[in-house]
Structures are given as structure tokens and as C-alpha cells.
């Protein structure tokens, strides 16, 4: 086989691979079930319980004083930007389940006056890594209390990701959660609605 033909075949193979995967499916959660807890302490099967709807999914921790509330604010801005919010879920999942119990999440949703379209989820402390790993979400403790006096007083280095999940449990695109413009997300939601 000539080198030219070999290069051509390799190029075609690469193109075929990318085309098959599709740039619009980042993660396939359609066959997965992650058992999470809602802010009212009920169990939620993620993403199964949200199938049939379009979902915006992001990750926060409630002890985060600055960036996570910015993410939450952006979620509400996206909600406000939509002409029609029916069939759209706004899901925030804690990556700090040791501190974020369902009642803590309820406090957060009350403080930030999030309406019923918002779902605040946490996991059992030992289970959270499975979902985070699957979605490439980074969340690591970064101790600020340099003296180490209080092991519960920590901040976290974390991803800033907002995922758009379609009705079938496929993550179709991602955004920088704290600064994506609502209009951008709105266009993508409308695109998924038209499918």
C-alpha cells in the first residue's frame, strides 16, 4: 500500500470515527441510573426521572460563597430568558455530599428563591464520585484553614460546567456555567425542542 493511500485511509478513518460519535453527544447517560437525593429527601433516579424533558445540569456546593451562587444566578437568568420553560428542568447537583444534606440544599433553594423547576440533588457521601467521574467533573477539597483546626472548613477546586441533556439522557453540549450567555443556551434548547 502506497504511503499516500495509507494516509488517505487513516484520514478517512479519523473522519468516520468523529462523525460516528457525533460532536453533539458528549456523554451517554441513557442507560445509566444514579440514585441521588432530592432537597425534600426523596430518592431520585438520575437521569431516568428526567427523561422526556430537556435538562440543564450543573454542579455546585453550598459552602461556596462566590462562584457557585454566580452559577445559580446564571441558571435563573437562563430560565428568565426562555419564552417557554415548560419541559425544561434546571438541575443542580452537589459535589460536596458530606456537607450538603437534603436539608442544606433546601435551605439553599429557599435562600435563593428557586422555583419548582429547580431540582437540587445530592448523593450518598460515598456514591458521588461515580457520577462525577462519568461526567468528568472535578471537585477536590482545597483547605483554606491553613492550621487545619477545622476539617469541615474547606473550600473546593471545582469544574465550572453546565451540561445540556436531551430528552433521552444524552449530554449534548457543555458551557462555562458561570458565564455562558442565556441567549446562547436558549438557542440550543430551542434546537433540541425542534428535534
Amino acid at each position: 500500500m502506497s504511503p499516500t493511500l495509507k494516509s488517505l485511509l487513516v484520514s478517512l478513518l479519523i473522519i468516520a470515527t468523529f462523525t460516528a460519535c457525533g460532536p453533539d453527544t458528549l456523554y451517554d447517560l441513557s442507560g445509566d441510573t444514579f440514585q441521588l437525593r432530592n432537597s425534600d429527601s426523596t430518592q431520585v433516579n438520575f437521569p431516568g426521572d428526567f427523561k422526556g424533558d430537556i435538562s440543564l445540569v450543573t454542579f455546585i456546593y453550598t459552602n461556596c460563597p462566590d462562584v457557585c451562587p454566580v452559577i445559580t444566578a446564571n441558571m435563573t437568568n437562563i430560565q428568565r430568558a426562555l419564552d417557554d420553560t415548560s419541559g425544561v428542568n434546571f438541575i443542580e447537583i452537589s459535589f460536596d455530599p458530606k456537607r450538603d444534606s437534603p436539608s442544606t440544599l433546601k435551605e439553599y433553594r429557599d435562600l435563593y428563591e428557586l422555583n419548582e423547576q429547580f431540582t437540587m440533588l445530592t448523593s450518598h457521601p460515598n456514591d458521588s464520585d461515580v457520577l462525577l467521574d462519568k461526567l468528568d467533573i472535578v471537585a477536590e477539597k482545597a483547605i483554606i484553614d491553613s492550621l487545619g483546626h477545622d476539617s469541615t472548613n474547606y473550600a473546593m477546586r471545582h469544574s465550572n460546567t453546565l451540561y445540556l441533556m436531551d430528552r433521552d439522557g444524552y449530554i449534548r453540549t457543555e458551557y462555562p456555567a458561570h458565564r455562558v450567555t442565556p441567549e446562547h443556551v436558549k438557542d440550543d434548547i430551542n434546537y433540541l425542542r425542534s428535534e
Binding site: P65, D66, V67, A155, M156, R157, H158, S159, N160, H178
Partner: peptide
């Protein structure tokens, strides 16, 4: 709050 090279945020 700072954005790290890997896209994560920390404080």
C-alpha cells in the same frame, strides 16, 4: 476566585 488552567475554579 481564580480560574485555573484546566478550567476549574478555586478560591
Amino acid at each position: 476566585s481564580i480560574e485555573n488552567d484546566d478550567g476549574t475554579t478555586s478560591m
